[in-house]
Design a protein around this nucleic acid. Structure first.
Lengths: 219, 219, 219, 219
DNA sequence: CTCTAAACGAGACGGTACGTCCAGTCTTCGG
DNA sequence: CCGAAGACTGGACGTACCGTCTCGTTTAGAG
């Protein structure tokens, strides 16, 4: 009973194992892109929770060591894979009023969280403990779309005279996005639209219109 | 709560327990408590990320099957284990002013998140996708301490005439806790104290004092 | 999240578990027969290799403890279960000649080995190491049909004057069955008929007709 | 069946690090031999019945996956492990007479069956049902020593004129070994010496001297 | 005809082993 | 010589049974 051993002494031909399914071996850029694409596909198929280095490597038809040489772990790989597809921070149309601009911005963010990116965000949170630098990198990506769109809306509000000029750079500015994100993390997607309107009408707009406290500082 | 050594030689009952073996086999309530205690200990020692059924079973001196008979997976076990240690919603001292009461409440919550419970909270978020019922169970536990303490502070504020009566049950009430939690999830513990004072002075108090919008409803 | 605990402190009613459509509880003889029957059925369905106490108990609608109260282990249970169905050693028809009588006897045994009994025989062999007494018990059952039928055939041969009178009780008598069993153990069932005829014509009959050696003794 | 070796070219024999605690990671040939050795040791220590993949892996200081990558299950592993130590079929001394030659051969086989190989043989029999190919592989190993030694004895007997020339290749030739094996499987080891002499004097020699039946054919 | 002790059924308990999957590391060998 | 491919160590997974034990329920059989 011969074990399924690969090392036959008489290997007459450069056969089987050498059959490259990819002709010339992929390297550098090409290989990296293939890996990131495989990561995205896996992510869409099985979700972040079931994502493994093993499966990504298999789908990319490469070895795990190739992944580890480029990324310290799964989390970092995923961050890169998502970054590639960012493209976001699209300009929001000017709806003519602060309230509707803000609503539009929140709905945009809500939509993004409902996709695999939201899944990833949740999955990455536990990793934040490991490495503060990593955590910061994630936060920057996460916060890309959110504050950008909101800040734009606030600036328009300032221009229209709806709110005071110091607000877009104050601690109050991010409250809407923070609450939205908090709701997503606890309740998941999709986020019901009245949650968004509640945040805007019951909290965010009143807050923006509330008088500046003595302590309130620009940031 | 002292480390509940369930089966120690003390066992007062009539049998002459030299306790060579495990003594009388643990069952039901007693066994369950031993398991939950073991879970807590493991959690404190290695953290949620490194928690395994195998180690919990070993520490509780039982078999994995006994765990799986009671909980579908690690996540549910941990939820139960944390719940047991709630000791929650401890009464906060009346400091005489809304601001200081709120600060005290947030600092209490912040302290809880800095412990293993915060670790657990982060670790559990990815599981929410699996099962909405499970997610709800977690949220209830997570929200135990927070809104309770805050609501108490707000009621005292109403009694003192600092804020209006409808606020403790409005959407605005939870904003401080939501922002705190959001900060914890993104930045981790410990939460710097000026983050807390910023939330209170720049956002929460102004919001509580802001006029009620037409849409604002009690909840 | 209350675990599914059974031991409530206040169990007011003799509830649920008592609703057994199994009217009178079986005991003693009746129960034992039900267990043995269940063993046989399992044996026929899944074979000896996959037989477990757990499944037998479940099929017999009893508890494992009831099995262990009666038999030390699976092997002994199976031995009993097979014994119950022995009934065999059926009289073989007198075909009028030694050769055909012997062939008929071997074919009878071959048929038995092809059924679950053969499966059992193989499965039990490793157990022989454990306990010599157990081994002897098995051997007696195994040898029941074989030597009985063969000896009958030999006696008829003596009566007809075909062979000498000392042969039915000599070491030579069992050779045919021994060879047949050996073939079964190594090659399994079904046993090709020319194996049987080879044994008879090339070995057994020549052996029976060979002159008694000086050393040959009755046994 | 020694697995074909692989790495002649580079592997200089001086390989200092036979110590695999922290030495270079074992692969291919070297690893395989370590596993088979561990199997043999376990076999000798606890016997086939208590042999587990888990323990073999632990003793070989490798993981179970490495075992399963090479062998489908315990049975196949054991077969290979035993095969490696075969080396047998040693030449038997010419004692000058057929009877003593045969006795020597049977005693050799008896000795082998009394060791762990006999244990293994019994343990493997139940597996024969699974896979006929597997069964054949075993039989070949099992029959290695037996017929070889016996056939040698018979050929010498022919040369001396003690028996007829057609016998070494006839069905009668294997009868002694078959009976011995049958006795071992039912009664276990050690095999009493008078069982062997009985087989030889009461059955085998008379059979070899019995006249050829018309049907007797060479094989 | 009670009352009691044993047997029954059900299944939990502390374990062992299964066969699989994956994390990271290390070796080999092709380009 | 670099680096792609993949084998290796190690460990946890969740399941199946083992043989024991506990718990309540029947049911004989003794008083």
């Amino acid at each position: 009973m011969p074990p399924p051993d690969a090392d036959q002494p008489v290997r007459t031909t450069g056969d089987t194992t050498a059959d490259h399914r990819r002709g010339p071996r992929r390297r550098g850029q090409e290989l990296e892109e293939a890996i990131l694409a495989a990561t995205i596909e896996e992510l869409a198929e099985v979700g972040y929770a079931r994502l493994t280095m093993e499966r990504v490597a298999a789908r990319a038809r490469t070895g795990k060591a190739t992944l580890y040489r480029r990324w310290p772990g799964l989390a970092e790989l995923v961050v890169d894979a998502c970054a590639i597809r960012d493209a976001s921070d699209a300009d929001l149309p000017d709806t003519g009023a602060l309230r509707t601009d803000v609503l539009a911005a929140l709905r945009l963010i809500s939509g993004q969280l409902a996709g695999p990116r939201g899944d990833v965000l949740r999955g990455l949170l536990p990793e934040f403990v490991r490495d503060p630098d990593f955590a910061r990198a994630i936060r920057e990506k996460v916060d890309t779309a959110g504050p950008g769109a909101i800040k734009q809306a606030l600036r328009r509000g300032v221009d229209r005279g709806e709110i005071e000029a110091w607000l877009p750079d104050s601690r109050r500015a991010t409250v809407a996005v923070d609450l939205l994100r908090n709701h997503f993390l606890l309740h998941g997607a999709p986020i019901a639209d009245d949650v968004i309107t509640d945040i805007v009408d019951d909290v965010y707009l009143p807050l923006l219109l509330a008088p500046r406290s003595g302590r309130d500082t620009e940031r």
